[in-house]
Amino acid sequence: MVATAILAALALLLGTAAFGPAEPASAAVAAGKPVKPPKPGGSTELEYAAVGDSFAAGVGGGSYLDTSCYRSANSYPRQLDADANKRLVSFPACTGASTVETLAQIATISTTAKVVTVTVGGNDVGFSNVMRNCFAFPSDSCQSSIDAGAAIAASQAFRDKVAGVITAIRTRTEPDAKVIVAGYPLLFHLNSSGVNTRYQWADEVNAETVVLNNVIESVAVGTGATFVDVEDDFAGHGIGSGSSWIVDWMYVNWNTAFHPTATGYAAYANAIRAVPVP
């Protein structure tokens, strides 16, 4: 019974299909600061929308705004909402969302959004399977889970799905809207020998994450979006480092494992801030 409960909790927030797109009403909990008056010269805050999976929702960041998608007050979208030039008006990002669920999220975002961020793709390549079979409950299925994810990431079908998300955002929003695709951090710190002392498969999963990010970046650039690579931003802060920005499976609630901490999401926000917006 205990093992069953743990597996259910792991599946809950590591990305099974049980979580579909956020409903518009639940997305409203993320409405951040109130509308500000126009700034001198007539300029106002840019309307901002955030879609995607658990990394976009802020799982691991704590201070959750809901229990359906586990959007966090410390997520990178909410941290960006604090900026003087942005106002978060749509936040349907949801735990477990693949490219399919993210497409459904897009239908709920404001059509007048000038900035849209998205992190998506990890669930398509089996993030939860790899985390479960390689780290949470290591099994003989670890390598096959990694190989299956790698095959999906290398496929044209996956590229088409990511491209479809970006195209749908462009169709939904105004022509001059800035679409920013944020990639994934490397979850594990490797020592000088290239290994993680706690997790056997850490180096291979890191390597496959680099491949996944490269594919997503290629698609993003090819569709006119801006890609934000956070690998360097998290360097030295993976699980096993002296200052980890990733929640370790061994020490906390199952539901937040292998996701950034609030500090990690601050690094995400800072990386996205470097992108010029309209």
Score class of each variant (00 low, 15 high):
residue 3 A to R: 12
residue 4 T to I: 11
residue 8 A to V: 07
residue 8 A to T: 11
residue 14 L to K: 08
residue 14 L to T: 14
residue 15 G to S: 02
residue 17 A to E: 10
residue 19 F to L: 04
residue 23 E to P: 14
residue 26 S to G: 06
residue 26 S to P: 00
residue 28 A to F: 01
residue 31 A to I: 08
residue 32 G to T: 07
residue 35 V to C: 10
residue 35 V to A: 15
residue 37 P to Q: 14
residue 38 P to K: 10
residue 43 S to E: 15
residue 43 S to N: 11
residue 44 T to L: 08
residue 46 L to Y: 14
residue 49 A to I: 01
residue 49 A to T: 03
residue 55 F to T: 07
residue 55 F to G: 01
residue 61 G to A: 10
residue 64 Y to P: 10
residue 66 D to T: 03
residue 70 Y to D: 02
residue 75 S to Y: 05
residue 77 P to T: 05
residue 80 L to R: 05
residue 86 K to Y: 12
residue 88 L to F: 05
residue 90 S to E: 02
residue 91 F to D: 13
residue 96 G to W: 09
residue 96 G to H: 11
residue 101 E to G: 07
residue 104 A to W: 04
residue 104 A to V: 03
residue 106 I to W: 13
residue 107 A to F: 02
residue 108 T to C: 03
residue 111 T to D: 13
residue 112 T to N: 13
residue 118 V to M: 09
residue 119 T to V: 03
residue 120 V to W: 08
residue 122 G to C: 04
residue 122 G to V: 00
residue 124 D to K: 07
residue 129 N to R: 15
residue 130 V to F: 08
residue 131 M to E: 13
residue 131 M to R: 03
residue 134 C to H: 10
residue 134 C to Y: 05
residue 137 F to Q: 10
residue 142 C to P: 01
residue 145 S to R: 12
residue 146 I to H: 07
residue 154 A to V: 00
residue 155 S to W: 09
residue 158 F to E: 04
residue 164 G to F: 05
residue 165 V to M: 11
residue 166 I to N: 10
residue 180 I to V: 08
residue 183 G to S: 08
residue 187 L to P: 09
residue 189 H to C: 02
residue 196 N to C: 00
residue 197 T to V: 09
residue 199 Y to D: 09
residue 202 A to Q: 02
residue 203 D to Q: 15
residue 207 A to V: 07
residue 209 T to Q: 12
residue 210 V to F: 06
residue 215 V to A: 09
residue 216 I to P: 04
residue 217 E to Q: 15
residue 217 E to A: 14
residue 221 V to M: 01
residue 224 G to A: 05
residue 225 A to Y: 10
residue 231 E to R: 15
residue 239 I to K: 03
residue 243 S to K: 15
residue 244 S to N: 09
residue 244 S to M: 04
residue 245 W to P: 00
residue 245 W to H: 13
residue 248 D to T: 01
residue 250 M to H: 06
residue 251 Y to K: 13
residue 256 T to G: 12
residue 257 A to V: 02
residue 260 P to N: 09
residue 261 T to G: 10
residue 262 A to E: 07
residue 265 Y to W: 07
residue 267 A to K: 13
residue 269 A to D: 11
residue 270 N to W: 01
residue 272 I to A: 06
residue 274 A to Q: 15
residue 276 P to K: 04
residue 277 V to P: 02
